[in-house]
Simulated scan of single mutants.
Amino acid sequence: MSAALPSHLAAALFGHRFTDLHEPWRPLFATLAGYERLERIGTFLCTELGYGNNAAQLETTAVRDRHGFILHTPGTAAAKFMPNTSPAGGPKTGIVAARLLVEGADEGVMLFLSHHAPLLEALATAYAATLLHRTALARWEHALTTPGADREEAEIHAALTKAWTTWQVRQILIECRERCGAQGLVPVNGLADYLATIEGPITAEGDNLPILVKAAAHLIMGHTGESPTAQPPDTSPADPDFLQHALRRGEDLHRQRARVALRAPAAGTLSRWNHATGPALRLAEATAARMAAQSLLETARATPDAQATDLLLTLHRLLALRLLAPCTGDLLAAGHRLRGRPFRSRHVRPGLRA
């Protein structure tokens, strides 16, 4: 996510004092004082691999959405290739030269201040995937060593974990590679190799899609998983229990749709199942995602260090909001409400910033 930046403000980051800015802009950049104290580093990202500094030919685009601007690299030639974006000197904030697109119209090249929200979301997902994997291992060990334990449930948990974590790792690697620009393609940096390597676990020991289909059948027919009717004690969307409750509600909507599709008239059993496969897979993905968020939440609450707990709860909130975003419309349509108002993820997202 990025913010549009007038040229005189960009200049302030690279050679002028913030006190020289016009009065209306000073509050907006109060948090950038670290640059003036030489505690943070900014870099100007204009050069593209295929066009150098020829601004007329730059291909990087910026498209407005509700929360700012989405910066996009449409091809290899548009990758920013700057010598001062290496790890030397620590993290940096970029002023990105990009072509502004408004309703499809090219408004020319402008400057944008880049943030790291996608990487923060990737970090939250990485923590959740790691903790979900640990939970699955512990559950499987319990099923193997404890008489009377439900091994089938452990198998389904392992299948959901394997599919969700490996697919999420692939997306994390893609995000990291793209954020590194052309440097992410250089073999010595390792990211390109990791992208090839993750395809093995996605396919090995059971291709993700077939094992997810099998798990989905169990979730529809062999496991009720109904949500409790009562709201959590605190119905504020800042409450992690509320977010988990909302994730479970979204999961239940997919279960209901899959069951309706499975009962629809069809030529035979196979045809009926094929009709239900789409919503069933969405149910399996939602279940795995909710379990991952739950593992992150449980770890946050079990952590003795207060600062670590606070950081983990923030990551849980960020993850839950990302997972809820696609089903917010479904929750609204189903009548799920927040203190008399329809649930919307925007009630909490503005408080989470890179």
Rank of each mutant, 00 (worst) to 15 (best):
P265D: 01
P228D: 14
L270V: 11
Q256Y: 03
R259H: 09
A293Y: 13
A267E: 12
P228K: 11
R255E: 06
W273C: 03
R290I: 00
M291L: 14
G278W: 12
A292K: 12
S236K: 12
F242E: 13
L281S: 05
T235H: 09
A280V: 00
P201E: 02
P279I: 01
Q256C: 00
F242W: 14
A261L: 06
T197N: 11
T269N: 11
L209R: 15
A264I: 00
F242V: 00
A204K: 08
W273S: 06
G225P: 02
L247H: 09
A266I: 02
R257T: 01
T224Q: 14
A238L: 11
P201Y: 05
L212Y: 03
F242C: 11
A289K: 15
R282M: 10
L219K: 04
T224G: 09
K214I: 00
T203Q: 08
G200V: 06
G250V: 01
E205P: 00
A215W: 04
D207T: 09
Q294R: 14
G250H: 04
E199I: 05
D234M: 07
T277V: 09
E199D: 10
H254L: 04
K214A: 09
R259S: 05
V260M: 08
E205A: 04
L253C: 03
L209Q: 13
P279A: 06
H218T: 04
I220A: 05
N274K: 14
D207Q: 12
T224N: 13
W273E: 06
K214Q: 10
L243W: 10
V213P: 01
I211E: 06
A238R: 15
A261W: 06
N208M: 07
S271M: 08
L243A: 10
R248H: 14
Q231Y: 15
G225N: 02
A289M: 08
P232Y: 07
R263I: 00
S271W: 06
A276D: 06
P240S: 10
N274L: 13
G206C: 05
A261H: 05
W273N: 02
S236M: 10
L262K: 09
D234Y: 09
A258K: 03
D241M: 12
P233T: 06
L195P: 04
L253A: 07
P210R: 07
A246N: 06
K214C: 03
R263L: 04
R255M: 05
A289E: 15
T235E: 14
A264E: 08
R257Q: 11
M291P: 05
T229Y: 13
N208P: 02
S227D: 14
E251Y: 03
T235C: 09
G278P: 07
Q244R: 15
P240Y: 11
G222V: 02
L243V: 03
W273P: 01
A192N: 14
P233C: 07
V260W: 06
A230P: 11
P210V: 05
R282H: 12
A192E: 15
D207F: 09
I198P: 00
P233G: 08
I220T: 07
L219S: 02
A266C: 01
T203G: 03
P237D: 10
S271A: 15
R263K: 09
P279M: 08
R249I: 01
L253P: 11
G225L: 02
R272L: 01
R257L: 06
R272I: 02
T224Y: 10
A215H: 03
R257I: 00
